[in-house]
């Protein structure tokens, strides 16, 4: 039993079998990578974990509880945070405001009507948000309008917004897509540091093999909606089936 257990999950879109018989167990405090060619069903699988999609069959257990039938905000409150394939941030808000919202969400747990209080009075939350921004080297951008930032910065902000909630499980959908090499390396360093410093489990979808092999403790290869193999990075590298299904294409 891992912290996340996916059993016999299947999902169809009309006639298309996006996922079938997916079994996956992510162990606590490890980094589990899911790789596979375009259209393999990686994002679909992730969506089934966070309440965006409901699988047709199977079960998804997180931390001993089923996530199926729960809405995204409830699943987040259980301790799962997610980074999207294209960064989802509050574009009309400043960087600091973007950080404050997950802080409030984490502290309040649900709807609270703080309509008369001032944000500036929340010293603890502000400090928390600033410390996190510092960790991702964005403290100097705290008053920037977040929509006007580069894609790499938006991605880092989104990651910081997830991390500031101190999630048990962090789901990352291609976190380095569209990033410059230097930014990618920064992200790898950041994730490594987080892994070492905190009790956190990471599930990452990634095309960039450099990122995968730098971070992953285990790798699952997904092809046409089904897991092909699951193994350690060393074994995956040399696996003939993987070479054929995935690595062969991109190398």
């Amino acid at each position: 039993m891992g912290i996340l257990d996916v059993k016999d999950v299947g999902k169809r879109f009309g006639g298309l079998k996006a996922l079938s018989d997916v079994n996956l167990s992510v162990q606590e405090n490890t980094c589990h990578a899911i790789i596979g060619p375009n259209g393999a069903g990686k994002s679909t699988l992730l969506n089934c974990l966070v309440g965006k999609l409901i699988p047709d069959t199977g079960s998804v257990m997180f931390d001993g509880q089923s996530v199926l039938g729960r809405s995204p905000h409830e699943i987040n409150q259980m301790g799962i945070s997610r980074v999207f394939q294209t960064p989802e941030i509050f574009g009309d808000l400043t960087v600091m405001e973007n950080m404050m919202i997950p802080c409030f969400a984490k502290r309040d747990g649900a709807f609270r009507m703080h309509a008369y209080e001032s944000i500036a009075a929340e010293r603890d939350l502000i400090e928390m948000a600033e410390a996190m921004l510092d960790d991702v080297n964005m403290l100097d951008k705290r008053n920037m309008h977040s929509a006007s930032m580069s894609r790499g910065d938006k991605r880092r902000l989104e990651m910081a917004m997830c991390l500031v909630q101190n999630p048990k499980l962090l789901l990352l959908d291609e976190p380095t897509a569209g990033m410059a090499r230097a930014d990618t390396n920064n992200t790898i360093d950041l994730l490594k540091e987080i892994k070492d410093k905190r009790d956190i489990t990471i599930a990452i979808i990634e095309h960039d093999m450099h990122v995968v092999f730098s971070l992953a403790d285990r790798i699952t290869v997904l092809a046409q909606g089904t897991p092909l193999v699951e193994d350690t990075p060393e074994n995956i590298k040399g696996h003939p089936k993987v070479q054929e299904a995935y690595l062969g294409e991109s190398h």
Binding site: E88, I89, F90, L93, I101, F104
Partner: peptide, 22 residues
């Protein structure tokens, strides 16, 4: 207020707010 900020967050990106736990 924090409430006002949440309202602006709703205008900006409801999806992100949902995945942020609210």
């Amino acid at each position: 207020s924090p409430f006002g900020m949440m309202l602006r967050a709703i205008k900006s990106n409801q999806q992100r707010l949902r995945y942020t736990g609210l």
